[in-house]
Design a protein around this nucleic acid. Structure first.
Lengths: 252, 252
DNA sequence: CGCTTTATTGAGAGATATCAATACTTGTGG
DNA sequence: CCACAAGTATTGATATCTCTCAATAAAGCG
């Protein structure tokens, strides 16, 4: 874990390319200057390094600057479950606000960097900047919605459907960040995907092979191309937001 | 759905018996007076009535005054999944803050009443009363943690373990509200329990019978007694918070 | 280049789902 | 107040999906 206290301009929220996906959405430049003073430090993580561990006292929440992290819960008997994957612009550590201690472990899946948002100071600032407060509430709420969709997946979908909706969810989040939405690298192992989806690694592997056979995707190791998005959406049981539902013109 | 605009004292936050489990935790009496002006309306629901539906525009969040509600998500093909059960003092509708529309359906499991917290006004007030803001963030965060524990259950536990941890979770939440923690009525049907746990109704039934046979519980219809709490905790794979772990005195 | 880790594929086992029959509750109306 | 209907829960028999165990293959790493 490598801390940076940086006055280098590229680290400021005001000029960060992630601005629109992170906290400062819709905030005036004068107010962003205040945020700049709040978020001065970053943490650099190598693959496999922990950002925080279950039980650690919360002093900050974190925004992913680049890279990917996972959060996971552990059971007493050693079983563990991946709860979420976190892409650039997403906030980590929110589960620690409830009682002042993180509930999960956060681990980098690749070389990553996160901005440190000292929580006490942030709450004060949010009080002064209504837009920031609103945005923070939206982020917390979306986090909730994301987890609840995940619950729907684990509770109601079969392995195949879970995997399809996982790939599409990733695709959507990457697209929102300006990456290709139909071709990308999976930063997580099959084990981690399986854990996240509540299925075994062998099942993940089989389902991916099956998808490839039926022409839904192409996969080579961790590099994946989504070929038939509509097919995947149908499998996942969710509507395809990109597809223009054909409405027949009236009177033609 | 039956609205009440009540100036009757028992409806005020300042004198509500739920105060300590709801928003106003740790708030001074002068500030609670301000909350009183915010929460003036309540909704009375009969069993089966909806409080809000997926897609409805968010204008308020709700606090359960008495009764029990469930929230659920629907899939296109008609499958649906219960995401949560909500007891007195718990806040509903938080999933609507993200984009201004509720993501789930909220339905009363029995005759219930909820307080209406107009959201715009609430955000303003939270800015004025730091303790209220903090408490709101804690509530949002705990909601997140609750969902994540639920994810752990659906992703990593077997049917039996899920049911045990469900019963214990209910028991803990009831205890926190001053109810008996080892004997209570299940307000939800077997179907709803099964949906919540990602298992079929028949499996719920079989597991409950098995628990009863092995002396862990007694169950008659929806009335349940938890007989062997330690046994249940062991099954659920979580530590029993009430049990004093025996630490051998040193030098004896 | 060889070792370790990670992923794929196959065969068989097991947990839970599905289908079906029965019993129990609750509510309604005669 | 009882009888019937509709909904809800239990229990059994069988089917199916996913897991587990095992062997092989491929990739990453020193």
């Amino acid at each position: 874990m490598n801390y940076t206290n940086s006055d280098n301009p590229s680290s400021k929220c005001s000029v960060c390319v992630l601005g629109q996906f992170c906290l400062p959405v819709g905030i005036s430049s004068t107010d962003i200057a205040k945020i700049d003073t709040l978020v001065k430090e970053r943490v650099h993580l190598q693959k496999g390094e922990s950002l925080y561990r279950h039980g650690d006292t919360l002093s900050a929440v974190y925004s992913v600057r680049f890279g990917t992290l996972k959060t996971e819960y552990c059971l007493e008997d050693g079983r563990q479950q991946v709860i979420g994957f976190h892409l650039p612009g997403e906030i980590l550590g929110l589960d620690g606000i409830g009682d002042g201690h993180y509930q999960s472990d956060a681990v980098a899946l690749e070389e990553s960097e996160v901005c440190i948002i000292r929580y006490e100071a942030f709450e004060d600032l949010a009080r002064q900047i209504p837009v920031l407060q609103k945005q923070f509430h939206r982020i917390l709420s979306r986090e909730l919605t994301q987890d609840q969709r995940h619950l729907l997946s684990l509770g109601s979908l079969r392995a195949e459907e879970r995997l399809a909706s996982f790939l599409l969810n990733l695709s959507q989040r990457l697209a929102a960040r300006g990456y290709l939405n139909n071709e990308f690298d999976l930063r997580m192992s099959r084990v981690e995907i399986g854990s996240y989806l509540g299925i075994q690694i062998e099942t993940v592997s089989r389902m991916l092979s099956r998808f490839a056979e039926s022409g839904l995707i192409q996969i080579k190791q961790r590099h994946i191309k989504l070929i038939d998005m509509d097919g995947l959406y149908e499998l996942a049981g969710i509507p395809n937001p990109d597809r223009n539902t054909q409405i027949k013109p009236i009177g033609v």
